[in-house]
Design a protein around this nucleic acid. Structure first.
Lengths: 120, 120
DNA sequence: CTGGTACCTGGAGCGCGCTCCAGGTCAAGC
DNA sequence: GCTTGACCTGGAGCGCGCTCCAGGTACCAG
């Protein structure tokens, strides 16, 4: 616990090394320390931030929006309302996404039932 | 009812004209008739096929897989089992997708609750 | 000290699913 | 007949989110 080499961070977070470097470049990941020689060192905090990113990413948040969230998180307490608003809005987006998936899934199931009864 | 100009087909299906032409190029849409002058004419059947494509697309099926489905649909009765299998597999994929969304949504909601109680 | 592997950087490239463009054709209304 | 707008084709380009590469450096094991 406490500090992880890049390879281990990749493994634990589920992001590739290239993706971790990419996220750093675009400002999604800013707090990663370095050794004297310039190698990255990830902390538990970094990993938990990556956990949040994974969660937002997997639920379809565009990277630009994640960057906005990251920016707010770097800001102080006064960004709390906006962070909250952003997450709440995303929560609603996920809800809509699930509802649409369910509806479309129902159509697929009808199609399947149709095949089951009309074929063979 | 029965035949639609490209613009109307686009409007009714929700796909852009360019997307309709693209789907035709890659073989997702093969039955569209033409006027003597070469303009497309869409039928109700075309529109209902487009409805299926929209459904598969919106639930995240890759285009290559939709092409496979289209190919099977052009085949005879004997492709029924494979079509059925393809749809059933996709249904399971959608189910997994929804489950993952729900799980991640729960994390987001925890985060929101955290902000609500700790901030302001 | 040496070897080997893990890591570094900047920048180019990729795969998907469209989207746009140039330059021309078709067709309905006046 | 003429205009006007919708449509045609082949092919290039784009936006996203990575992914790969070349050429070089760091660090640990023996």
């Amino acid at each position: 616990m406490g500090s992880y080499a890049p390879g281990e961070a990749a493994e634990r977070s589920g992001f590739s090394l290239d993706t971790l470097r990419y996220y750093e470049r675009i400002g999604l990941l800013t707090s990663v320390r370095r050794t004297a020689g310039g190698q990255r060192v990830f902390t538990d905090d970094d990993l938990s931030w990556l956990g949040i990113l994974r969660c937002l990413r997997d639920t379809g948040m565009p990277i630009a929006r994640m960057c906005r969230y990251a920016e707010l998180s770097r800001g102080g307490e006064e960004t709390m309302p906006e962070r909250l608003a952003l997450l709440a809005e995303h929560d609603r987006a996920v809800e809509r996404q699930i509802a649409r998936l369910r509806a479309q899934q129902e159509h697929i199931r009808e199609k399947i039932r149709y095949y089951r009864t009309h074929a063979v």
